[in-house]
Structure formats: structure tokens, C-alpha cells
């Protein structure tokens, strides 16, 4: 009985992995792009690379409401159905933002799993320091807790002044969507 169950589980897993491998990830990305465009978010000039189980997006330029907002060297999309993640490497904000935040973000990692279906969580690090990200999908809120770097503390005090300070010395940015 246990052997049969194990075999069934193996077949299910195999089917899922095969489905992920054969899934038209580039076209799924295009579909996601169309949905993001409705929110005024567009990735431009990117090159797409289907790597079997992951999709890599290289050298993208991010536009928010038609404004060039950032350049992103690499985005890695891992869609495993039960565990999905987005890895962003080397994001550089547009010069327009230079008076508000340090421009270089080294990495951003967002995770969505079926074990926590109501939240997207993530971590981010860069010149600004480090940040923990929490997206509440039910209440449609985004919360970013920033642990600022020395550079952020010394040069971007005005930005930090607009954020709430938490008990642990972090600065909280909240936004609903």
C-alpha cells in the first residue's frame, strides 16, 4: 500500500516537473507583462532566456507610468507551483530618484509558497541597507521594513523622516494597492 502511494506521489511529482519544464514560460511572462501594464508597469528592452525550470530576464528597463524608473541586470523567475520565487540582481534606479534613495540595489528576493498562500515575503539588500518585504494579499498592503545603511542614515535622512520608526530601529514603509 505504502509502495503504491509512494509510486503515485512519484507520478504526480513527475507530471508537475514535466509540466513546469514544458510550460511556455516566455508566453506566461508576456501574459504577466500585459497584466502589469494595466498597473502602468512595463519591462522594456529585456532578453528572455528559458532555462527549463526557470526563466531569466536580462538587461530590462523598468518603466512605471511611462517613466524610466530602473535598470535591472537580471531577473530570475522560478515557478515551481508549490514554491515560486523572483530573484532580482543589480537593480539601479533612475537618476531622478537619486535625491530620495541610493540608486543601487544589489539583490531582491521574493517568495510565494502554498504554505503561506496569503503572503508574499522577501528580502532586499543594497546601498540603502537591508529590507524585509511583506505583501499581504488579503488586505492588499505592502510593508517594507528597512534597516538603513550608514550612507542612507547620513545622506537620506529626509526620506527616512517620512517613514515610521519601529521598535527595533528599522524604518517602516507601508503602501496599500
Amino acid at each position: 500500500m505504502v509502495k503504491k502511494l509512494a509510486l503515485l506521489l512519484f507520478y504526480v511529482m513527475f507530471f508537475m516537473m514535466a509540466s513546469i519544464y514544458f510550460a511556455p514560460k516566455v508566453n506566461i511572462y508576456y501574459f504577466a507583462e500585459q497584466q502589469l501594464q494595466k498597473k502602468g508597469i512595463v519591462l522594456n528592452d529585456e532578453t528572455l532566456n528559458d532555462k527549463g525550470f526557470t526563466l531569466e530576464v536580462n538587461n530590462a528597463v523598468l518603466y512605471v507610468k511611462s517613466l524610466e524608473t530602473a535598470k535591472i541586470q537580471k531577473i530570475k523567475l522560478n515557478l515551481f507551483l508549490l514554491y515560486n520565487s523572483v530573484e532580482v540582481e543589480n537593480l539601479v534606479f533612475s537618476d531622478m530618484a537619486s535625491r530620495f534613495i541610493p540608486l543601487h540595489v544589489k539583490s531582491l528576493y521574493l517568495v510565494y509558497t502554498v504554505f503561506d498562500p496569503l503572503h508574499v515575503t522577501g528580502k532586499c539588500s543594497g546601498e540603502f541597507g537591508e529590507a524585509d518585504i511583506n505583501i499581504d494579499l488579503v488586505n492588499r498592503t505592502l510593508q517594507i521594513v528597512i534597516k538603513p545603511s550608514k550612507k542612507m542614515l547620513s545622506h537620506y535622512r529626509t526620506t527616512l523622516r517620512n517613514l515610521k520608526k519601529d521598535k527595533n530601529g528599522g524604518f517602516v514603509y507601508e503602501q496599500s494597492f
Binding site: 508576456y30 501574459f31 507583462e33 522594456n44 511611462s66
Partner: peptide
Amino acid sequence: LPGNGIDV
């Protein structure tokens, strides 16, 4: 699914 992406 769509066959083309969005370009600005």
C-alpha cells in the same frame, strides 16, 4: 497566451 510582449 499572448505571443508578444509589451514594448514602450
